[in-house]
């Protein structure tokens, strides 16, 4: 009987230590390290570029929609970690499923394992519940940009059901402008958002092309896709979700068209853009 008491007391003590005291599923104090913030990763990438100097080619890993499967997402992160030819990762949205603290924390755990800079794009699911508050506190702004190797990467919010007046077209146009007077050298301009141009808003493709974007990259659809409007010619690439350890690779080496690969595990195949009327 005394052994039962001891076992019970031990279990109780372990429970107290192991568990968190939470008043509801909708708290916003997410336990995520600063290494997942946009500002941290911008600085990290800048430091890497300073150290490596100019390079003629680089690769970017495109991961998306890790929601509900943090383990599979972590596996992909570890696979990317093992590759020396990839400079950084862009995670195109839906870090959470219902926008709650627990989901964000699990994804953060996996993100923090990356040995490369990782930039997150806000997805529609990320904004559910109090997810917008969590995003702003934990990741950073919804729209932002950064540069690397004479390329500009512009990340924008286009989750139209969850946010008003998105995407911010004026901001996008301004981001695409090359600051020639300031001495900027720009060879490529890429745009990232969670959702590819909506079917009812395909004129966005023409607008982005007009602003000067060379390629847009997205997630959301939980499958690979690669298309361009026949009348516009701006390619849109969609990375699959990480549930089955799928991800994309963008190669920038001065050659056109850009090489995009669809990968599952260690197997990658070159994607071909389909023309859409």
């Amino acid at each position: 009987m005394k052994s039962i008491k001891i076992i019970f007391s031990l279990l109780l003590a372990v429970s107290l230590v192991a568990c968190q005291y939470e008043v509801s599923p909708w708290s916003t104090d997410v336990d995520c390290p600063t290494s997942v913030t946009i500002e941290y990763n911008k600085a990290r990438l800048q430091a890497i570029e300073l150290e490596e100097g100019p390079r003629s080619a680089y690769k970017v890993a495109l991961l998306s929609d890790p929601q509900m499967y943090p383990g599979a997402f972590e596996n992909v992160i570890e696979r990317i970690n093992a590759r020396d030819d990839i400079s950084f990762i862009v995670l195109t949205g839906d870090l959470a499923e219902t926008g709650i603290k627990a989901e964000y924390e699990w994804t953060c755990k996996a993100m923090s394992k990356s040995n490369k800079p990782i930039f997150a794009v806000i997805g529609n699911h990320d904004a559910l519940s109090f997810g917008t508050d969590i995003w702003l506190d934990t990741i950073g702004p919804e729209n932002y940009s950064f540069t690397y190797q004479n390329s500009k990467f512009v990340v924008y919010n286009d989750n139209k059901y969850e946010f008003a007046n998105v995407p911010d077209r004026d901001w996008l146009e301004a981001q695409a402008v090359v600051d020639i007077a300031g001495g900027e050298v720009r060879e490529h301009t890429f745009a990232f958002s969670h959702i590819p141009p909506w079917p009812e808003d395909l004129e966005l493709s023409a607008e982005l092309e007009g602003y000067g974007f060379d390629l847009t990259l997205h997630g959301h659809e939980h499958d690979f896709d690669f298309w361009e409007l026949a009348t516009v010619g701006l390619p849109h690439y969609v990375a699959s979700f990480t549930k089955f350890e799928e991800y994309g690779i963008l190669t920038v080496d001065g050659q056109l068209p850009y090489v995009l690969e669809n990968c599952r595990g260690s197997v990658c195949t070159v994607a071909s853009a389909r023309s859409v009327d």
Partner: peptide
């Protein structure tokens, strides 16, 4: 659901057989 589906993730990242990552008191 997540713990049943991906126990190794929680075991790798949290204490007490990964239960630290899903329990509240």
């Amino acid at each position: 659901v997540s713990y049943v589906r991906e126990p190794e993730f929680f075991n790798d990242n949290y204490e007490f057989l990964g239960l630290e990552g899903i329990t509240n008191w």
